[in-house]
């Protein structure tokens, strides 16, 4: 009985051990080793020296700032737009399914696709935005003032589908009779939205906020495709991009990448813990 159970869970445990737990823990060791700038030299133990060095570097501080700033732009706007679409589509009409499919559509467009599409729009020569008069010098995607915003727009559009789907599910979980009770009780449509829908939606809004922030922290493709190796100069080098550069950039530095990975993990973890605490409270509230 037990044997067969272990056989059943062995394959995923093996995969997780090799490709999740081991590399995760290995970060903590790797962080203490420095790779010399010359190829084929063994890395050497430097203790917390490297950790301190990375954490105090202007590059890291800038990257962390960029990551947070990027999330602060992308997450609230993305969620609010998703909620607006969900509210608009949350009515009983013929053919509403078509609109729902359209609003969900960006969920299947990858960051790569979104990045290429918007990259073209922002192209200084053939792009749509320059034609609309948005054509700063240097061009949008080579302009330190505009680049992060441009990358954010792509991210928001690409995340809109998921945001819409989650918000729609949330809206549908608000009981209709409670909304009707509010209607009879004298609440205007706006009052119903703010005093009934939003409070009843808040657990889902919170969930979406955490999930969206975590996923914003992991953004990479749009940055790689739109601003690429200029990212540091353009202030679009989020943590994940910095990790990538330390793995496959011009001067790979696994130790530094490990330190950055740990930071990224801690950011994610803190958000998850907040989420867990909140979920726990919510469960108690439901009892």
């Amino acid at each position: 009985m037990s044997l067969i159970a272990y056989c059943f869970i062995l394959p995923p445990l093996l995969v997780f051990s090799v490709f999740s737990f081991y590399p995760f823990l290995h970060n903590f060791k790797e962080a203490l080793y420095q790779t010399p700038p010359y190829p084929n030299e063994p890395s050497k133990y430097v203790g917390f020296h490297q950790v301190a060095q990375v954490l105090s570097s202007t590059q890291f501080v800038q990257s962390l700032t960029t990551t947070i700033l990027f999330s602060l732009i992308v997450v609230p706007i993305g969620l609010i737009l998703g909620l607006l679409l969900a509210v608009a589509a949350n009515r009983k009409l013929k053919a509403i399914g078509i609109y729902r499919t359209i609003f969900s559509s960006t969920v299947v467009t990858s960051v790569a696709i979104a990045a290429v599409i918007f990259g073209t729009f922002m192209d200084p020569v053939v792009g749509l935005l320059p034609w609309l008069g948005i054509n700063p010098m240097p061009p949008l995607l080579q302009n330190p003032t505009w680049a992060l915003l441009a990358v954010s727009v792509v991210t928001i559009w690409q995340g809109l589908g998921l945001s819409f789907i989650i918000m729609s599910a949330g809206l549908q979980s608000v009981p209709e009779d409670v909304l009707e009770a509010a209607e009879v009780d004298g609440a205007s449509p706006v009052a119903r939205f703010w005093h009934v829908t939003v409070p009843l939606l808040s657990p889902i809004l919170f969930f979406a906020l955490v999930v969206a922030t975590i996923s914003a922290f992991q953004s990479f493709g749009q940055i790689d495709l739109l601003t690429g190796s200029n990212s540091a100069y353009l202030h679009t080098d989020v943590l994940t991009y910095l990790i990538y550069q330390n793995i496959q950039g011009q001067a790979p530095n696994p130790g530094v990448a490990s330190v950055l990975s740990i930071v990224l993990f801690l950011l994610t973890l803190s958000l998850t813990l907040i989420q867990l605490r909140y979920v726990e409270r919510r469960v108690q509230y439901a009892l």
């Binding site: 995760f24 793995i247 696994p254």
Partner: peptide, 14 residues
Amino acid sequence: MIPFEVTLVTNLTT
């Protein structure tokens, strides 16, 4: 709780 990005360095080596 472990984002894949965090395991990138070592996974590539593995």
